[in-house]
Amino acid sequence: MKLNKSNKSEKLIVFDIKRFAIHDGPGIRTTVFLQGCPLRCGWCHNPEGISIGKGPKSKKIELNELFEEIIKDKPFYEISKGGVSFSGGEPMLQFKPLTKLLRMCKKSKVNTAVETCGHCNWEAFEKIIPFVDLFFYDLKHIDNKIHKKGTGSSNKIILDNLKKLDKRGCNIVIRIPLISGFNDDKKTFSDIGKFLSELKNIRFIEVLPFNVFAESKYSKLGKKIDEKFTKILSQQKINELTEPLRKEIRK
């Protein structure tokens, strides 16, 4: 693959690259974590990636260099039908250079996935859609008030964008963080279920309980996490809470 000279000056702000990622889409993948997020969720499992523009681990990397890193595992992508995933932070914050990089990946026949909280202008999605094989779309709450309290932002634009993405026929996997003291009630999951049952292109729904390993990250950053979020729920409790969601989907 010839490298594109015009990409030379363009950079993405990255705070981590994880190879052999097996939970971020089909097959064996490389996940690139992009710095900065518009939301301020108190339970965020990547707190080092929240601040916009710069973070404690962030590095500006040229697109060509990043592409070379991604393409290294091409043999593994090829056999496992894997590829690259962009997570964060919120990748859509850097959608311009990201779109360019995604275009390079698609040209080299690398499967692409983007994990997003959905909080961005629809125009950004418009630009990126042609180069994305799969969206991981985070859905946290249907009730706007609670959403705003938990994440610092309204969910209106998030839900709108999700509907639009669905309408455009994009492949979507929904990711729901299950956080005690925020959305650990059956009603939330019933509401989410009702909302999702209207959509047509949801491939998969993943419910992710609070990541216990995130706690140590907070202390390293000199931050404190609200203890109510860190409560560990039993598998039985998780199954109970998510049952209404299952029910709605099955309808």
Binding site: H23, I202, F204, I205, L208, P209, I232, L233, Q235, T242
Partner: peptide, 16 residues
């Protein structure tokens, strides 16, 4: 370690 999925639930849809 934070990539280990503990207690992770997957729900299949008709599009799976």
């Amino acid at each position: 370690k934070n990539y280990c999925m503990i207690g992770h639930v997957s729900i299949l849809t008709s599009k799976t």
